[in-house]
Amino acid sequence: MSFLRLEQVTRSVQLPDGSRLDILRGIDLEVAVGDHVSIVGRSGSGKSTLLNILGLIDTPTSGSLEFDGVPLERLRMGARDRRRGRDVGFIFQQFNLLPRRTALENVMTPLLYASGRQFWRRERLATEMLERVGLGARIGSTPDQLSGGEQQRVAIARALVRGPRLILADEPTGALDVETGAQVMALLDEVAESTGAALITITHDPNIAALARRHFRLDRGVLSAADDATAGLADFAEAAR
């Protein structure tokens, strides 16, 4: 069953001169729990806008989006926020860790918006998640004391600590060197697979995209399947150069 379903989703904005800019056009996409999807596209192709819509941060201008079987229009703002907190984990290119907070505090942050057992046991859950990403010895370190790879691992732990069913990774290796990026992706893939969460990775990097099971290209706001991953992505990489 689809966890996420987009039908003919568009997103446009009004420019200062009164003209309209279409960022996304007629997007159709279905993502099931446990799926691993990659979306590649050039800068300005609408990748982040699509990710924001998938993560309930932004809303489509037209078209329909069903999140866990519930049409988006039936979810009010607060309900979307709560659902996002419960079901979606974000991983950003620039990590977006809270400065001056320790790794543990960063990972505990999403649990502050949880309830019941997750809220009351937040320190233990966060510690366990950090241990799982190999940072059990660094829980007291602040972001400025961590390397880029470590910071992204903290960000992964933070994204996964509430056990989301959808992980949205926006250029997760964009700020890392190739080797560290590969390690981070391997970790992300492993953790996502073990938790059964759907993973959508948005990236420039064909090698990172190739790790997914299903591949899409986003070009000028139009999403298309790139079933022959290697060929499609190689074409893309060529075009991107």
């Binding site: 926020d81 907190g85 974000f90 977006n96 809270l98 400065p99 942050t109 999403p110 949880a114």
Partner: peptide, 16 residues
């Protein structure tokens, strides 16, 4: 503001 945005992305409602 950035920090608030991060918190919102992890489920903090506007009311919260």
């Amino acid at each position: 503001i950035r920090e608030i945005g991060i918190r919102r992305s992890f489920g903090a409602t506007a009311g919260r």
